[in-house]
């Protein structure tokens, strides 16, 4: 992406969902709350589907189950902090 003349790329990282119920209502709503704090665009990709991490419906409709690997994609000014904090929260099972 061309951003203010600089060559920019979104950053991404793979992570495994460990919540026993997958990304169901509660963990999904925790994820949305966290993602909404950041300015950058945040997407979650599973297989050939991608969903906006700031939309609870989009995330729930991915139907991510336990032990599924997802790719977290962040793109925007605070992407570094965003990816770090979200990965950490996922690894902590959103405090479950």
């Amino acid at each position: 992406m061309n951003f203010l003349g600089k060559e920019r790329k979104m950053i991404k990282e793979k992570v495994t969902i460990k919540n026993e119920t997958g990304l169901h209502a509660r963990p999904a709503s925790e994820l949305v709350k966290l993602a909404s704090k950041f300015k950058c665009n945040i997407n979650i990709a599973v297989g050939d589907k991608t969903a906006n991490a700031k939309s609870i419906l989009a995330i729930m409709s991915l139907g991510v189950k336990v032990n599924t690997e997802i790719e977290l994609q962040c793109d925007g000014e605070d992407e570094e902090t965003a990816i770090k904090e979200i990965i950490e929260a996922i690894n902590n099972k959103f405090g479950e």
Partner: peptide, 16 residues
Amino acid sequence: KEIMDAYLMIMQDPSL
């Protein structure tokens, strides 16, 4: 309450 909170978030979701 957790159920209600999830409801609220769904209602505020633009994709809904």
